[in-house]
Structure formats: C-alpha cells, structure tokens
C-alpha cells in the first residue's frame, strides 16, 4: 500500500472502502463510517493518528470495510480538507464528472 499521509502530518483522518459497494467512507468520532469527509474524526499528532488507525480493526473484522488507511487533512473554517490532490478527488468524485460521486450527492464536499 502506498503512503497516503506524511511523516510530520499534524492532522489525519481515517478512510476505507465499504465492502459491499466499494464506496469511500470515513471513520467518525462515534466509530461509525460516514460517506462524508466532514463527519470524519480528526486526530492530531502521531500517537492520536495511530490510535485512530487502530479503531478500524473491528470494522475490518466485521467485514464492513476494506483497506483502511490514514491520510493528511487540514482544518479550515470549521471544515475538514484533504491535503493531497488524490484525497481531495477521493472525497469528491472524478473532477471530469462533477455530476457523479459525493460532490453530486453530499453537502460540504470541497474541490
């Protein structure tokens, strides 16, 4: 698995794909999986990041999600933003089809 976060990342969120349909999801503070990055729990610092990642294990065990990983986010005006182009596209949908994916379905998606 490629690295999607950065060593010195201050803030990180946890993402995975839902097993049954593959849709991208984010782990929330209540340990649920939401389709919106805006619902994601955000960990600050390395140790909190590791603790966040560990919380994916039960959902992987329970066959709810696959391929969980951490990625870097920033917090701007109360909203959670993915830092890399890749994760920005992943939380929105294809930039070449603005009518598809989360950008067409959810509020608070950034481009």
């Amino acid at each position: 698995m490629a690295q999607h976060t950065r060593k010195g990342a201050q803030f990180q969120a946890l993402t995975a794909n839902r097993l049954s349909d593959g849709i991208v999801v984010y782990l929330t503070r209540e340990d649920r999986w939401s389709e919106s990055l805006q619902d994601a729990d955000v960990a600050e610092g390395k140790e909190a990041g590791e603790a966040l990642l560990a919380r994916a294990a039960p959902s992987v065990e329970a066959n709810e999600v696959v391929e969980p990983y951490l990625f870097e986010v920033s917090l701007e005006d109360e909203s959670v933003r993915a830092v890399s182009v890749r994760e920005t596209i992943r939380q929105a949908g294809p930039t070449v089809r603005r009518d598809l994916g989360k950008q067409a379905e959810l509020a608070g998606v950034h481009r």
């Binding site: 349909d21 991208v24 992943r90």
Partner: peptide, 27 residues
C-alpha cells in the same frame, strides 16, 4: 465474502481473477 466466511486476503486474488478491482471511488 459478504458474510465474512472469506477474509479480504483470501478474497482479493479471487475477485481479481474475475476482473473486479478496488479503485479510487469504488470497485
């Protein structure tokens, strides 16, 4: 796989043999 009898590690090579990849947004 959906009921959990197969783990992802067991299932992944099987799905790939049938043309199913996991991509950026979905399968």
């Amino acid at each position: 796989r959906l009921t959990g009898e197969l783990t992802e590690d067991e299932f992944k090579p099987l799905r790939l043999m049938n043309g199913v990849y996991l991509q950026l947004h979905a399968y």
